[in-house]
């Protein structure tokens, strides 16, 4: 072998050798994971506290951590949790209220981290023609909401705040999609819900729509939950999801305007307006001690109102699995241990 051919062959051999030698070290774990992405199914409610999951999906952050996330969107966190518990998804984002209700019934899922919270989003929309102008006017009215959900709990707090017990009103439960039409049709006098259903009701009722709200009364926090079998079998995937959400949090912090624009595009401008000022929307992956207080408050409410048939509170210490977030963002774990 001689001449230019020999030189080319030598160069090719050197390049191949370099690739063989460099590839194991030069290829990062993320790149390796991209080569064979791990499939994960995520049940995602279309609500602002779960915006980090939406952003991560849109920005391709899940793919960057080696995941191939199949996102199924749901109108509420309760539906998303139900879908996960039904085995349709591995993980879900959901508010604490559905979590607490489910925790009374089953012990096959765990809370991994809070992913965002918002206050002021939940509203009570009433029909002016039914004589409702202010919260006190709700007494004796037929008020609808989604049972065993965050809006249900919010309505409970809203009524208490205004000196109205649940016995003082006629509380009925509907599917969330039906609420605006039910109000417009007069089947109910008011309903407690969030965007985009509040805006839908405004549209339907026009000037007759009365929107009542109490910002700061309740912080709606969505949590990332996962089935225990998933956590047992694929803990790394759960950590990867948390890692992607952490990157989404960083991205949202760096470019808040862009983040809000995306949320508005997905959930509607009204949804975002409800979270105005921006401080009302807090997109952060964390596990803090208030989680237990929130869960126990909801649990006490559920037991006292007999929404659940139980006398003992679930073991929320067992419900929270902090090790995944501890492995990814230890500084984000502030629960008392």
């Amino acid at each position: 072998m001689s001449g230019p051919g020999a030189i080319e062959a030598a160069l090719l051999g050197a390049m191949l050798a370099a690739l063989v030698l460099v590839a194991p070290q030069g290829c990062s774990r993320e790149e390796a994971e991209r080569i064979s992405p791990e499939p994960v199914r995520l049940a995602l409610p279309l609500q602002t506290p779960s915006a980090l999951a939406m952003l991560a999906a849109e920005e391709g952050l899940f793919e960057r951590v080696g995941l191939s996330v199949e996102v199924t969107e749901h109108v509420s966190g309760k539906r998303a949790l139900a879908a996960m518990l039904a085995g349709e998804a591995d993980l879900a984002t959901v508010a604490e209220v559905p979590i607490v209700f489910s925790s009374f019934e089953r012990d096959d899922f765990r809370i991994l981290a809070g992913v965002g919270s918002v206050t002021g989003e939940h509203r009570v929309v009433a029909h002016r023609s039914r004589g409702i102008e202010q919260p006190a006017d709700l007494r004796g009215k037929r008020i609808a909401t989604q049972r065993a959900s965050a809006v249900h709990f919010y309505l409970h707090l809203f009524l208490i705040k205004h000196g109205i017990s649940e016995e003082d009103v006629e509380l009925v439960f509907h599917d969330v999609e039906e609420l605006p039409e039910a109000l417009a049709a007069g089947r109910i006098d008011a309903f407690c819900m969030r965007e985009p259903f509040v805006s839908r009701a405004r549209e339907l009722l026009g000037p007759d729509a009365v929107v009542l709200g109490e910002p700061g009364l309740y912080f709606h926090t969505d949590y990332l939950v996962a089935r225990t079998d998933f956590l047992r079998e694929r803990p790394e995937a759960a950590r990867a999801v948390l890692r992607a959400l952490g990157r989404a949090e960083e991205a949202a912090g760096r470019r808040p305007g862009r983040t809000r624009a995306r949320i508005a595009r997905r959930l509607g401008a009204e949804a975002l307006r409800a979270a105005d000022p921006p401080a009302r929307l807090r997109l952060k992956v964390s596990l803090d001690q208030s989680l237990y207080s929130s869960l126990e408050a909801v649990a006490r409410w559920a037991m006292e109102t007999r929404l659940v048939d139980a006398d003992e509170m679930p073991d929320f210490l067992e419900l929270v699995q902090a090790d995944c977030l501890d492995a990814v963002q230890p500084q984000a774990v502030t629960i008392i241990r």
Binding site: Q289, Y292, S293, E296, R300, M313, D315, F316, I336, R337
Partner: peptide
């Protein structure tokens, strides 16, 4: 944190708070 948990325990007699 113990103070918080103490409050929590005294407020709701929470077993979870006592264990914590």
């Amino acid at each position: 944190e113990l103070n918080i948990l103490t409050y929590d325990f005294l407020q709701y007699r929470s077993e979870r708070a006592r264990r914590q």
